[in-house]
């Protein structure tokens, strides 16, 4: 199946947006999962360091210069496709952080344990909320950072708040 049939990107389609292991180990970096030629480019304008490029007119696909990107997350809430994630694999102890756009209520609180979901919507395991950004500048697209087992970093793309105990 291709992503045109079920909406799920194949691993090879994501490879191009993932930096080398060495770069990942150096700290947070933007992972853009936007593979189609759509008329859109606000990510390019959002990155003040000029790390995101789209070749040709705005119908090209974005790519990140991983040496320039420092994972500042400015692009995350600027993307109407909600297709940009920031992954930090530069942490000790076998954990990584994934930051993702989260336009749902209620917002989780720091310290909450949540159920992590993959691109397919499948349950991966658990994560812990580390930070919740929802300033006015983010214009109602809050950014939630959660810590997950390091080997889940490239798979966690959403989460479910755990049902509060009945």
């Amino acid at each position: 199946m291709s992503h045109r049939q079920d909406g799920i990107l194949e691993p090879r389609q994501i490879d191009a947006s993932v930096p080398a292991t060495e770069r990942l180990g150096r700290g947070p970096v933007a992972i853009i999962e936007c593979v189609e030629n759509i008329p859109c480019n606000p990510c390019v304008d959002a990155c003040q360091k000029g790390a995101i490029r789209i070749e040709g007119d705005m119908n090209g696909t974005p790519s990140v210069d991983f040496d320039i990107c420092d994972g500042c997350m400015l692009c995350v809430s600027a993307c109407p496709g909600l297709a940009i994630f920031v992954v930090n694999k530069g942490l000790p102890g076998g954990v990584a952080e994934v930051s993702l756009p989260y336009e749902y209520t209620p917002l989780p609180s720091v310290g909450d344990t949540v159920v992590t979901l993959s691109r397919e919507g499948a349950v991966l395991g658990e994560g812990t909320i580390q930070r919740v950004l929802s300033s006015k500048a983010l214009d109602r697209t809050p950014i939630v950072t959660l810590s997950v087992p390091a080997d889940h970093a490239m798979d966690v793309r959403h989460f479910l708040a755990k049902e509060p105990p009945a």
């Binding site: 079920d6 990107l9 593979v35 909600l82 691109r119 397919e120 919507g121 959403h158």
Partner: peptide, 14 residues
């Protein structure tokens, strides 16, 4: 667009 599809698929909607 795939990016629109991805938002609902990752939330568990087939």
């Amino acid at each position: 667009y795939h990016v629109h599809a991805a938002k609902v698929v990752r939330a568990g909607v087939p």
